[in-house]
Write a protein that binds this DNA or RNA. Sequence first.
DNA 1: TCTGGGGTCCTAGGACCC
DNA 2: TCTGGGGTCCTAGGACCC
Length: 393
Amino acid sequence: MFLHIDCNTYFASCEVATNPELEGKPVVVANDNENGGGIILALTPEAKALGLKRGIPLFKVRNLIKLNNVVIRQVDHKKYRQISHTIMNAVRQQDIVQDFVQYSVDEFFGTLPLTDPDELRHYAKLVKDMIWDTTHIPVSCGISQSYTLAKVATHYAKHYKGYGGICVLMPENRERALGLLDIADIWGIGRQNRQKLYAIGVHTGLEFANSEEAQLQKLFSVAGLNTWRELRGIPSINLSRPAQQRSIMQSRTFAYMTDDQKKLEQSIRQFAADCASKLRAQQSVCRQVSVFLSTNRHREDLDQYRNSGSVRLPSPTADTPIIVKSAVAALEQVFRTGFLYKQAGVILSDISQEEGMQLDLFSEPEDERHRKLMRIADAINKKFGDDTVNFGK
DNA sequence: TCTGGGGTCCTAGGACCC
DNA sequence: TCTGGGGTCCTAGGACCC
């Protein structure tokens, strides 16, 4: 059987776990910026009870927050990654959960070599309690015949208090569970696919699972059909992923809007340098550098423009100056005057491992000196903090 | 007159996820 | 005043090959 573990209101739980004085208080985690912008990313149950919701811009709820002494915590992704790492290690210490993998910063999957519902529940409880003892993070557990059904089970574990945060969904209860579930709540059904299904009169998980394969084939790609199979109890999703990331991105929504190319270039240079350093941290090289730009889509009164451009590198590299230079070139491709820009970012792609690196015929001995320089710069920044040393123009 | 057919590889963009 | 920041996979279609 497949086990799914989902941390409850993860970012908010991490803040409470690491700041005990926040216990029992309404807390929201937001990506607040210097202008007081930002949106709510996570909230404790106490904050939810006040009517606050994930995704709301802070400026719309300042009053509510002030009135109820809601604590606003700045989002801290580094901390959250560390805590999920601790959870990973803790669960891997014991030997009942197998194939334990991290799916996202706050979700995990594994398998349990058991079939008895009472036993399954018992071991899920052990894992849940152990995670609580180790990290003080509350989690919900779902268990069923496939990854997708395990997530359905977790959905019920979260929504029915009586389950105590654990739901074992056995085959005999599958139809009942799916019959009560809107297709929008199913993993793998997004906005587009939901509309397609509504259009053919399919609204519940059960109606979807009972649909004809031939009909679905016309509407969906393999991903949609995998979801369909999983809901019928046939495991069809493979979660194993390559050790390294296939793309690395850094972007920002600015506090301001600007039409100044020089100013954008400053940000793009920083993003590109940071991406390059992440790239080296996973011992990889990339062959493509892309830049995207966007105006403020919330300002319907202003002219809108968004575009992206790429630079293909002659050979794979993790060299900061080369990557920065390429990003600036890509920016020049897409920048248009007469618009007020609000968001920009850099994406590195076509990533491969450094070892198997294809040296091109014309690579310079200079490259080796560059690589040494990068290694030293990275080591200094790791030891003394990011941005201790940077690359000049 | 009649104007191939079958591949592979790459990329951008769309769908999904948290 | 003020509206996030990352990722993955799949597919269609163009470029290119013989």
